[in-house]
Design a protein around this nucleic acid. Structure first.
Lengths: 222, 222
DNA sequence: AATATTTTTTAGATTTGTCTAAAATTTATT
DNA sequence: AATAAATTTTAGACAAATCTAAAAAATATT
């Protein structure tokens, strides 16, 4: 049960694409993997041979149980490294993806377990995405677009829907990060902007685009 | 200037073999890299093309300046990760080589620099081998075989010439580790065993083989 | 339903790093 | 110095992962 970097990258991409669509198409995979459709077909045959996917020609792919299990292990490694890079090595969240893409392919049982322990068994990565535990189990928490939440209710930032430096820059400037408590004061019909209050700071206005990218949960305590 | 894992492994092996012999032979490389001599020849041609080595057919290889620089970067990464694994993730020194072999090929400038900083810019790895700094510079310290040191002089363990679990097990049992202060009390001509005193512990006897593997410096203060 | 368009697959080639078997060269031995 | 032995290289092949161009199948359009 040892897979190449290429195989792992395909499995991971199928996993992520599956979140939005039931079955994943050849073209879609080719696009996210930055490769040619013909190459995707070749690899899908290989993954079928290795019994990681359901695949019939012209009918798209889907992970089977083994594929899902593998995908969760890869995602686990990726997100643990992201957490490490941000919290231990003080990277910005926008700098970690590329490195984590490399680190995630190092398959050494003890390395990942010790890393997990060292980090204190974190359940969410720096973008608010859940880190699968050793068994592949994902912690759940609400991740609702701030843009469509009720007004005057206390909300808490749980995740971001984008990992770009530009978003990080903007949110940092507004003192918004994971865990920040927010209340919507009013919205503007003109462009969908929101006026919001952040904990004990003075209120600010954010664009509709930002509000759609910031994901929140209904805050427990008032 | 981006090299494959295979290329890096060859460069690293040439570097290590160069320490003992001036030029490195095809067969010797094949042996340490667990591959066929013919494969080595193929790769040496490639490394020559990439201007990392001096190589003439039938005459052995040698790193040139660029090759040495690259080798030191790889060794730096390897030893920093070993330090991390032992000191941060609490691996035994005998468990780290294999993992570090994988981690060393992740080439991300900032990752290595931040890791170095996080670790406190260590100058020696868990086996006492020097960690090249960012410029590739190696710290020097004596590493003399305990077996051939003067008696009654205070010595300090600086390195080990072997990374096996068996040696680690033995040294741990005797409370010998990097930094341990030792004085030779007497030697036995029968088999070259040594009676030694370790700091304030009661004296013990170690075999000639162990004494040859433990490397020391003359201790500064009495 | 027939045709056009898009998507996907097949066929055949390429690159990297490896292999085996045979040939070339160097080194050691008589 | 000639021959034997060891080392190293060349020639040709192979597996993994990719590519391009053409063919096949599915989907959309008239």
């Amino acid at each position: 049960m040892n897979y190449s970097v290429a195989e792992e990258n395909y499995i991971k991409s199928v996993y992520h694409l599956q979140q939005n669509a039931d079955t994943v198409t050849t073209n879609h995979l080719a696009e996210v993997l930055q490769t040619q459709p013909a190459s995707v077909t070749d690899m899908l045959k290989k993954l079928l041979d290795k019994k990681l996917v359901h695949y019939e020609r012209y009918k798209g792919v889907k992970l089977n149980a083994a594929g899902k299990k593998l995908a969760l292990q890869i995602v686990r490694r990726h997100r643990l490294w992201e957490y490490f890079l941000v919290n231990t090595l003080h990277f910005g969240w926008d700098e970690v993806h590329e490195v984590a893409e490399q680190l995630e392919h190092i398959t050494h049982q003890k390395l990942i377990e010790q890393l997990d322990q060292f980090l204190g068994y974190p359940r969410f990565d720096p973008h608010g995405d859940p880190i699968p535990d050793k068994q592949g189990k994902l912690a759940y928490q609400q991740r609702l677009p701030l843009s469509s939440q009720p007004h005057h209710t206390w909300l808490e930032v749980t995740a971001v829907g984008d990992e770009s430096p530009e978003l990080l820059d903007m949110l940092t400037h507004h003192h918004i990060h994971l865990g920040t408590r927010i209340r919507i004061l009013r919205s503007f019909n003109f462009d969908g902007s929101l006026e919001i209050a952040i904990s004990d700071r003075k209120s600010i206005t954010i664009s509709k685009t930002v509000a759609e990218t910031v994901l929140v949960k209904i805050s427990d305590h008032e």
